[in-house]
Amino acid sequence: MLPWAKKRAERIEKAADAAARAANAGKTRTLWGDALKRLSKNKLAIIGFAWIIVMVLIALSADLWVPQNFGDPTFIDTGNVAAISWQPPSLEHPFGTDRVGRDILSRTIYGARVSLLVGICATGFALIVGLIMGALAGYFGGLVDAIIMRVTDIFMAFPYTLFAIALLAVLGPSLMNVILAIGILAWTSIARVLRSTILSVKENDYISAARALGASNLRIIVRHVLPNSIASVVVYATMAIGSAILSEAALSFLGLGVQPPTPSWGMMISDGQAVIATAPWMAFFPGAACLLTVLSFTLMGDGLRDALDVKVTD
């Protein structure tokens, strides 16, 4: 056989093989199985996922393994403040110490607790409200849709940060209220994402089939509409955790988040702002930790979006 013909035959064989495999794959695997396989090939998403797991484990187990004077985030050695305060990063204090000699590394680790807690709880709250509102608006349409969409319009017309600040000024600064304020602002986007997906899912024949079989509205929404529209919400929620963490940091930075002595990244950056000329490590490390954590959620969200092949627009 001539070389070019041989090459061509090989190519055809390969293509046929790939097509067979693809057809086979389509038969046996599910959307989520496929997505998981594609996701596992995305190195950046895996790195992001690994970092999130590490952060969660560190935050959960901080009390157990962090040495005593690292472990107590409120630790103040009143006898000897002058000697231990404002220390630049060293082996003993890898991130340096602050005004009263507290170790920045241990405070950063404990700050992760607040950030992850707020990120996950606020997104969870927004998911519950957003899913219900989005499902109602998308599925029923008409007047229900119009009312819910106008409400989201009102929420979205507000300048985001200002609204969160005003809410906290009313509610008073505390961990619970930060979660509430961020959740109240975040549900509108989730509702809109779900609504627009449902609008297209609803047109499918299997929905008419379910209705013809006599299924109730609730059953159609829960069994047929939601499972087919949830992918975009999953992608959106992953990224929303990242932005909730950023919002928490911003609110703490403005003094409206959790209150001292509980450490949070935003507050530590705010403490560091006054001394950036003499002790830049104070602002640098908590901010870097925040950046890496949010970046992990962004990369994972990007990876999920590509893996699930959804378009996130709102």
Partner: peptide, 22 residues
């Protein structure tokens, strides 16, 4: 772009101040 969208804005501002200002 992934790094930029994941960054606390105020922290970025502070880092710019530390580098370009100080």
């Amino acid at each position: 772009t992934s790094v930029l969208v994941s960054m606390p804005v105020f922290w970025f501002g502070l880092m710019l101040q530390i580098f370009f200002g100080i």
